[in-house]
Simulated assay, not measured.
Amino acid sequence: MLVSVVTIGNSRGIRFPKLVLDKLCVKDKMDMEVTEKGILLTPVNDLPRSNWAAAFCKMHKMK
């Protein structure tokens, strides 16, 4: 899919079609990784309190 790079303030960005964002369940964040082949964007699935169990276990061990 060919997309245009557009000016956004002093930066430049890409606008993603809503269908693509919905299909990948993108909310408001994506993880960006620069590779030798280009840029890899991965949706971030922030689940509230998803890491609490591990944090509580770690705190218990530090007691």
Rank of each mutant, 00 (worst) to 15 (best):
V5W: 08
K61E: 10
V6Y: 09
E33I: 10
V6H: 11
T42I: 03
L47F: 09
T7L: 14
V6D: 14
K27E: 15
V34A: 07
T7H: 14
K23C: 09
D31F: 08
L19D: 15
V44Q: 08
K58I: 01
K37H: 09
T42W: 02
M62V: 04
K27N: 15
E36K: 15
K18E: 06
K37W: 02
K63L: 07
V34E: 11
K23G: 10
N10Y: 13
A54K: 11
M1L: 11
H60W: 00
M32W: 07
K37R: 11
T7N: 14
K61Q: 09
A55C: 02
N51Y: 10
N45Q: 06
M59F: 05
C57L: 06
M59E: 02
F16V: 04
L41S: 02
G38T: 02
C57Q: 07
A54Q: 09
W52G: 00
I39Y: 00
F56I: 07
A54L: 04
R12P: 05
V44I: 08
R12D: 07
V6G: 05
K58F: 01
V34T: 05
M62N: 13
G9W: 04
L19H: 06
K37D: 07
M62L: 12
N45M: 06
N51V: 10
M30H: 04
V5H: 05
N51D: 15
T35N: 02
E33P: 02
V44K: 07
R49V: 04
D31T: 05
L24T: 00
H60M: 12
V34C: 04
K29F: 03
K23T: 13
K58A: 04
N51K: 09
P48M: 01
N10C: 13
L41M: 08
L19F: 10
A55Q: 11
F56W: 04
T42G: 02
S4W: 13
L21S: 14
K29S: 10
T7D: 14
E36H: 11
P48F: 02
